[in-house]
Design a binder for these strands. Structure first.
Lengths: 206, 206
DNA sequence: ACATTATTTGACTAAATAGTCAAATTTAAT
DNA sequence: ATTAAATTTGACTATTTAGTCAAATAATGT
């Protein structure tokens, strides 16, 4: 873990924030510099282009997301609880973002991927990587549900995980497009549990 | 139905095509004019801005999509068949687009909505309208499934329709991001039928 | 045929944007 | 304290982009 210069980290965080709540195409290098309070020369000292910055942002962002996800999906927890925690985490994060920026921002990987993955293979590759890892966490949890006899094992865990994750991306998209936080509250957990086959009752308090 | 001048229609179609396969932010007015073989002066004769063009494109595009959807979801057909036809239609369209442009283009409303609906309320409004209408078609079909005794009626049709449509949007996003047509083939029908509660067997030949 | 309206042309401006660079400054190492 | 490396500064260029406009051309109605 090499330490990142302050200005560089500032630019990375600013880029993530701006692209997440707006879009890749709408955010210019000037925007990022202005918001970060950094001059253009400094930007080009650390990054070769917007594409370069974006790729480094994705890597940088994932280093902060990964440990959270591994905590949420920790195998030491009850599998149902992992999905509960996941839904709560997503809702809480999106609520914070909406409070900050006035918009439901959705999934940064899905939004960026939708816009950019048919333009840039490096971006595409990184996003697919995140998708694969997250689906892996889903699959492991579903496997544990089966092993615990909590759901029946008609479908393969990886298949269920894939469908469940696809649904989650759908919810995040709809919530962003319609700028509706309640969509996440109402539809994320219930739909996810439906697809996986968990008995849907009122959620346990976090 | 007033007739649209040739040049204007050309610009509308070009804009739809370019934005669909790339993105809103990446496509410039110059791009659209160049691709359409139209000079900028003509562009501004018909449209006031890119935003104006986009809104008119959405309206124009939906006039061609709507009758197709109403045919697919015609109440005279068996309800299961409607969903079969819907899946086949989506797959076929995306296959054609991929053959033309080399990319899975996904749902134009969802992609544009993701990028633009927190920037522009008029665009957002039109996209939500399409979503509402499509979910209505889903809900009607699900209601017919219940009436025919083909699925049990635990959940409300509108609720199921909403979850089903959310899943469809998820599939379209994943297919676009990963540029993978097979995702639509493999996951669209099976996931949709699962959520709705239709017995999933091998699809009937179209 | 004539007048009116719609459309097209192409050159134009102004602003935004990406990217460069040498010199000045700060930081870190010996 | 001195040197070397890293960082910052701010002014610079070139290109792209949105948008304007008056004149020329084409289409339409009478």
């Amino acid at each position: 873990m090499q330490k990142i210069p302050k200005t560089k980290e500032n630019l990375l965080n600013t880029a993530i924030s701006l692209v997440w709540r707006n879009s890749y195409g709408l955010v210019t290098i000037d925007d990022i510099c202005k918001e970060a309070g950094v001059l253009k020369g400094s930007f080009y000292h650390y990054f070769g282009s917007k594409q370069d910055l974006t790729i480094q942002s994705l890597d940088y962002f994932y280093t902060s997301v990964r440990p959270m996800f591994e905590n949420i999906f920790s195998p030491e927890k009850e599998p149902v609880q992992r999905f509960e925690d996941y839904c709560n985490f997503v809702y809480k994060s999106q609520k914070e973002l909406k409070a900050l920026y006035g918009h439901v921002c959705g999934c940064p990987y899905a939004s960026l991927g939708c816009e950019m993955s048919n333009q840039d293979d490096e971006i595409k590759h990184r996003i697919e990587e995140v998708f694969t890892l997250t689906q892996g966490l889903f699959a492991k949890t579903i496997k544990d549900l089966i092993d615990d006899g909590l759901i029946d094992e008609k479908a393969k865990p990886t298949d269920k995980a894939h469908k469940a994750y696809t649904y989650v991306i759908g919810v995040m998209m709809m919530a962003r497009i319609q700028n509706d936080l309640n969509l996440i509250k109402r539809e994320m957990r219930s739909g996810l549990f439906n697809i996986i086959g968990i008995n849907v009752k009122t959620p346990k308090p976090a």
